[in-house]
Nucleic acid binder design. Structure first.
Lengths: 183, 183
DNA sequence: CGACTCATGTAAGCTGTTACATGATTTA
DNA sequence: TAAATCATGTAACAGCTTACATGAGTCG
């Protein structure tokens, strides 16, 4: 039940159309909550039906016509409620770790190359986050809102740092492993 | 498409019934791939239909009767194939980060208590992992299989360490924030 | 025999993914 | 005017979650 609230947040930051939201999800918010345009359109319809958002004044209700939404007071209230409400952290769910566990049983052949590929991907993501940090959060220029957003970005940076370190360590371990231990 | 492979891995480690699998998912494998008993039963049915597993000799096909499964060669082959096949990492998806982003817009009131609660939960999980490490992975007693499993556990430990550190940092930031910045 | 636990399962609903459809606007 | 792109959607399906159903064995 988080996608509607992700959309409300994005719309509060700036009223947008469905496609604009999709683009913004590909950039900032999507870094920790991704969504496709189909999800977004479906959710926009629901949010409007529930009275949390409405289309902006200049309404053209035709298909293929741009339609922008803004958040209504009820939507803002719902977002505030949700943001403050206690929620349990979701248990970890990671395919790569599962694959390593499987490799411990059926053999490690072939998995090392993908570890390298993941390492490269995480390095790239880390570099991207660090660019954003440099661009958007110069030292000593922080409003309270900036500090919160910086905090969120920090989580992203630290997570990517963790993955690059762990993958490097994993590849070191593989180098020491006996050549073929696929049973 | 990872749950069937998680089950194959668990069954290779030890043939089990549905409920035994559920218990083991609550413990070891579930630490990075959780599943409910409904998911597991459904998947066991599919895996059997596909010829990847079969019920053990002592078959009692009645409802309410225990039914244990073992992996067939085709199942092992499929697991090896899947484990080696390249897969992209999934983008990060974290509700707490999303809530902080929302809080940057609608105000931080109420969220701090939940940050504290999360910190406590992650500390507990970290302690649990460290106990397992001490118990199952004594220094210098490692088969190649143990090294892989240890590597996976290490990821869990490092991730929990990241969260405890980041949450501590976040709470520090909150302490410095102006009292009520709801808007 | 009543309550509880073990064990397997069904059903409904929601979220996310993939593929496709359709109208409007721009551009070569 | 044909093709490409912008923009909004529909449909079908797979996976996960939650609630409930049912039978078998165990214990007081």
């Amino acid at each position: 039940m988080s996608l509607p609230h992700a959309i409300l947040t994005a719309l509060l930051e700036k009223p947008s159309s469905g496609l604009e939201l999709t683009r913004r999800f590909d950039r900032s918010i999507g870094y920790f909550w991704s969504a496709t345009h189909q999800q977004i359109y479906r959710e926009l319809g629901k949010l409007e039906a529930e009275g949390y958002i409405r289309t902006l004044a200049s309404e053209q209700p035709a298909r293929g016509q741009k339609k922008s939404y803004e958040v209504l007071p009820a939507g803002r209230a719902e977002l505030a409620r949700w943001s403050a409400a206690s929620q349990d952290p979701k248990p970890l769910r990671d395919v790569l770790l599962l694959r390593l566990r499987a490799a411990a049983v059926v053999g490690t052949e072939g998995i090392e190359a993908d570890l390298r590929r993941h390492l490269e991907l995480h390095r790239r993501q880390l570099a991207e986050y660090e660019e954003i940090e440099e661009r958007d959060f110069p030292p000593d220029k922080d409003s309270p809102q900036d500090r919160l957003r910086h905090l969120v970005l920090r989580a992203g940076i630290d997570l990517e740092t963790f993955w690059t370190r762990w993958l490097t360590h994993a590849l070191d371990e593989f180098a020491e492993l006996p050549a073929d231990q696929s049973r």
